[in-house]
Simulated scan of single mutants.
Amino acid sequence: MKKKETFWFGLIAALVVTLVSAILLGSERVSVFEMTEQGRAILFDIRLPRVLLGACVGASLAIAGASLQALLRNPLAEPYLLGVSNGAALGTLLAFVFLDGLAWARPLLAFAGAIIATFAVYQMAKSRAGMNVERLVLSGVIVTTFLSSIIVLLTSLLDAARLRGYTFWLLGDLSQATYDGFYMTLAAATVGTVVLSTQARALNLMMIGERDAFDFGVEVGRVRITIFTVASVLVGTAVAASGSVGYVGLIVPHLVRLAVGSDNRLVVPMSAISGAIFVVLADTVARTAIAPRELPVGAITALIGAPLFIYLLRR
């Protein structure tokens, strides 16, 4: 217990240090001791909403990945690899092309796209013999490829300026962060963490097997629908706000499990904090590595996540 409490304290302290450092670091140097009007604008109008949004996006993607891995009993289950992020991206693109004037269209269509992609992959991966890693990954690749093709076709409807902005956003972009986007993502991440934490005991039992969990009184069907729906809301909200930031839901839950074990009562909330730290750090690198130019944050997370994915696949 002492080790877990120490880990909790370390995570919270790391989150605070990461957030403060990310706000202070940037291509433009700002002194908190000699604050000018321009410095206040940079800190509070540009960096602060971006850093806070990045933290919420990281938390959302990490707990979505942790819950899907536990539900499907598959270490490779992750929103980006299963096509869920691409489903949300397609929904956002539809809103971007046809309903650009409606503020609610992006998150709503992103959620719809995410949940449709989730259930499509799940249905394709099922077989009489159950579900295995190869079938699940193959289903995710098929759905991702199909959705990517539709995205490419729809981008032909955009003019050059909008196409460049959407392409950069699709790779994961927090440069357009606003407080409204932060509030929306914060609400989704908070509610999602609470709901998924209430399902942690059921997920622990379902990791043994759905039949065994049913014998212990778990309503397997209800839990499955709850996890899929909440994960889709989290991914849809995150993608609508920041684009497709990949591999967060794969990397973070594994690192948390290596530290504290497989108990989802710890894995889910700790993944939320760890995901926030990971994305904020990645975004800090993305906007400072070649400053004053920026890299997509999704490129940084992919550089870390792809080698880990290969390692897990070989195991």
Score class of each variant (00 low, 15 high):
residue 161 A to P: 04
residue 193 T to R: 10
residue 119 F to L: 15
residue 136 L to T: 14
residue 105 A to R: 09
residue 94 L to Y: 11
residue 145 T to I: 04
residue 125 A to Y: 04
residue 137 V to A: 08
residue 94 L to T: 13
residue 150 I to K: 03
residue 128 R to H: 07
residue 163 L to N: 08
residue 123 Q to W: 06
residue 174 L to Y: 01
residue 165 G to A: 01
residue 177 A to T: 06
residue 163 L to S: 07
residue 183 Y to A: 11
residue 138 L to Q: 10
residue 88 A to I: 11
residue 111 F to Q: 00
residue 177 A to L: 07
residue 129 A to V: 10
residue 97 V to A: 09
residue 81 L to H: 14
residue 184 M to F: 11
residue 176 Q to V: 09
residue 124 M to H: 13
residue 127 S to K: 10
residue 168 F to T: 05
residue 196 L to F: 04
residue 165 G to K: 02
residue 166 Y to F: 15
residue 166 Y to C: 13
residue 86 N to G: 13
residue 190 T to S: 12
residue 118 T to W: 10
residue 115 I to S: 01
residue 131 M to A: 07
residue 144 T to E: 02
residue 193 T to E: 10
residue 186 L to A: 08
residue 180 D to T: 14
residue 97 V to L: 11
residue 127 S to H: 09
residue 192 G to V: 09
residue 125 A to S: 14
residue 162 R to Y: 03
residue 175 S to F: 03
residue 131 M to G: 05
residue 197 S to C: 06
residue 122 Y to N: 08
residue 143 V to D: 03
residue 81 L to E: 13
residue 92 T to Y: 14
residue 143 V to P: 00
residue 196 L to R: 03
residue 119 F to P: 00
residue 142 I to R: 01
residue 173 D to P: 02
residue 92 T to E: 14
residue 88 A to Y: 02
residue 184 M to N: 10
residue 143 V to Y: 01
residue 129 A to H: 12
residue 190 T to P: 05
residue 191 V to G: 04
residue 198 T to E: 05
residue 141 V to Y: 09
residue 130 G to Y: 12
residue 190 T to K: 06
residue 160 A to D: 13
residue 164 R to S: 14
residue 193 T to F: 08
residue 192 G to K: 11
residue 177 A to G: 06
residue 164 R to F: 07
residue 109 L to I: 14
residue 173 D to N: 03
residue 149 S to M: 06
residue 95 A to C: 06
residue 81 L to I: 15
residue 165 G to F: 00
residue 95 A to G: 07
residue 103 A to V: 13
residue 173 D to H: 00
residue 81 L to D: 05
residue 128 R to W: 06
residue 138 L to H: 05
residue 160 A to I: 10
residue 126 K to N: 09
residue 104 W to A: 12
residue 143 V to I: 15
residue 192 G to I: 13
residue 174 L to R: 01
residue 168 F to I: 06
residue 184 M to E: 09
residue 140 G to N: 02
residue 196 L to H: 04
residue 99 L to A: 14
residue 139 S to L: 05
residue 197 S to V: 04
residue 182 F to S: 10
residue 122 Y to T: 12
residue 98 F to R: 09
residue 129 A to E: 13
residue 119 F to N: 14
residue 181 G to D: 10
residue 119 F to Q: 14
residue 148 S to G: 09
residue 170 L to N: 13
residue 178 T to D: 12
residue 165 G to I: 01
residue 107 P to R: 13
residue 109 L to G: 10
residue 150 I to T: 01
residue 180 D to S: 15
residue 149 S to C: 04
residue 168 F to W: 03
residue 155 T to I: 12
residue 96 F to M: 15
residue 97 V to T: 09
residue 106 R to K: 15
residue 181 G to H: 10
residue 194 V to P: 07
residue 102 L to A: 15
residue 174 L to E: 00
residue 129 A to F: 14
residue 148 S to A: 04
residue 167 T to G: 03
